[in-house]
Design a protein around this nucleic acid. Structure first.
Lengths: 340, 340
DNA sequence: CCTGGCACTCGACCATCGAGAGTGCTAACA
DNA sequence: TGTTAGCACTCTCGATGGTCGAGTGCCAGG
């Protein structure tokens, strides 16, 4: 048995209906739909076929059918028509994003909020990846007699800072000169090249080794932190509005995944470079998410850095809308961050 | 009718039991308790009195009693014996906190995690208040040809930064000198005095007015941001473990409060300076939290700044344990942040 | 003043039942 | 041969009603 025109039509109708209602859909419902000119009996036969083909599941013998993950896969691959983003949604997105936002983190955080607000699902946004960034400047700023702030400015304006201990003898001027030296030495290096350069620096240096080691450690630590990954979550409560989370146990599992950056980050990271990805139910590596779908799109910050924004929700998700909203948001963020 | 020794005893027993089980407690249960040498009938009479006094509620005519908010109030004010924090808990707290943490934000975030982990409630932690802080240093660092990073170092090492636009003509040295000047002028001022001093600066100045205005704006913006308040939330999923949130609607309300910093922040801010506060059920201003209790303690960062850490959970909360864990945590954070 | 006893109340639990939605199958029809 | 009407069957859901047990209030006796 093979899929034919009519089977596609019916499957699509079933998925559309189920996405709207979350209720198993029966043959009558489909038959009544405009554009489907067949009797319930015919539909039933087709549905039976579709079940055999693995596209539909039946919760129990005598209730309507529910789309399987395989069906959603087919849906997003072939049947989905990605609509242009709605004017209203587009306006909300711009409005939110164009509030004065000086820091990248703020943009990211706000994006997560808007997305979850608009879609009523849960939004995930990663901070820009530091991988391909290059160092523009390193600056030491005195904070107290024995402490200084190390600031690492990277290309694309991403900034990292941390406090280190410095010898009391070093004055503000001295720190400034050190900063100039470090900037000269490290300028243009990718973060992974920094370590090598530091080794060279150490060779010809007598004083201030401790201090330099501190600076190196900061740069490395910041890298590690980055590897663990910053993920902003917006709208975790939204999930509870969907009937699939009426069961508190399920909701709890889901929420605890959202709280664990360690689990969340790889999920988004994986998708990273791709223009967009859709992971449906069991296609997610995390068993906790076997009944969720994750849609992601990438964004960029200049040419060198980028991150991922995503929406996570029940497999029964409005993929069309989510995809259009997400990709619009991706473009907007890219635009915002690149003009800096 | 007045409270006497025995009524206190019985009330305490009821509260203790209810805190453990979340089930309305009956006279037999109390009568069986060690230390209470009375028959169920006697207890019943006392319970009836306690109900009349407003300390107990009866969900329906023939089931056990449940403590009222008034009872909890009495409990925390008079009956509660704050135990020393458990050795195990103390160890977990130190272990978490003493992981290398260079930034205040990290300490804060981690604290929220540990607290929620240990107590199984939801933890809230505010970043240190900037109110009483004084400026130690202002520094401009070039980021690109036409952008610079403004760094405001405050007493206690709290750092704020933001990117502003600068005239292309200004070189790195020029920025450095400007930084020195600004630091000289603003050093030691509270943030609220800065605006006045800026007005004076403007008078005698011809060039760079635009730039200075930018710096002022940054300082002010950062202040505003601060007023909106940074609040870290840990363990929001924990709430779902408690039977009072078996109802998904309730859980949703609660979670959406947790997501709205605007609501959360004043709640903690209010408590701010106090050594500790306990807000029970309707004592909270937010109607969404009328069935929750909020326990907070303050922490300090040096002499000038401080924030609040808190636990939020059902009114039926283990106040003793929460209080001891919180105050221990408060002391630890104070210690950590002050040695910087 | 305390306590045992007793009648009463009320929610939780369970079984039963009918309605309704949906199915699969068969036979008739175009 | 594909489509449809009809029919018996299945399963969920909600309402109904009965029983059980925990708990109460009150009264009378110690």
């Amino acid at each position: 048995m093979r899929m034919d025109e009519r089977k596609f039509l019916i499957l699509q109708a079933i998925i559309d209906d189920y996405i709207m209602t979350a209720v198993p859909v029966g043959s009558r419902t489909i038959s009544r739909k405009q554009g489907v000119g067949f009797s319930p009996a015919t539909i039933r036969n087709e549905m039976s076929d579709l079940e055999e083909l693995g596209y539909l599941d039946q919760p129990h013998t005598s209730s309507g059918r529910v789309p399987s993950p395989k069906a959603y896969r087919l849906y997003v691959d072939h049947l989905l028509k990605v609509s242009e983003v709605g004017r209203e949604d587009a306006e909300r997105i711009s409005a939110y994003l164009h509030q004065r936002a000086t820091q990248v983190e703020q943009v990211i955080k706000r994006a997560a909020q808007v997305l979850s607000d608009i879609t009523q699902y849960t939004a995930l946004v990663t901070a820009p990846e530091v991988e391909a960034l290059r160092i523009v400047r390193v600056q030491l700023v005195p904070v107290s007699a024995s402490k200084a702030l190390v600031i690492v400015v990277t290309s694309a304006g991403l900034i990292k800072d941390a406090v280190i201990r410095v010898p009391e003898a070093l004055g503000s001027h001295h720190l400034y000169e050190l900063s100039q030296m470090l900037t000269n030495q490290l300028h243009g290096l990718s973060l992974s090249e920094v370590r090598r350069r530091f080794a060279e620096l150490f060779v010809g240096m007598k004083e201030n080794r401790r201090l330099l080691a501190g600076v190196l450690e900061v740069i490395e630590n910041r890298l590690e932190d980055e590897a663990k990954g910053e993920v902003m979550v917006g709208g975790s409560a939204n999930l509870l509005s969907h009937p699939e989370y009426a069961d508190v146990e399920k909701a709890k599992h889901f929420l605890s995944v959202l709280e664990s950056r360690e689990k969340l980050y790889p999920l988004l990271k994986q998708a990273g470079a791709m223009e967009f990805t859709i992971r449906i139910g069991p296609e997610n590596d995390l068993p906790e998410l076997s009944e969720c779908s994750l849609v992601t799109v990438g964004y960029h910050m200049g040419k060198q850095a980028g991150g991922t924004i995503g929406i996570i929700g029940p497999t029964r998700m409005d993929y069309g809308r989510v995809l259009s909203v997400l990709s619009y948001m991706g473009r907007m963020i890219t635009e915002m961050l690149s003009e800096n």
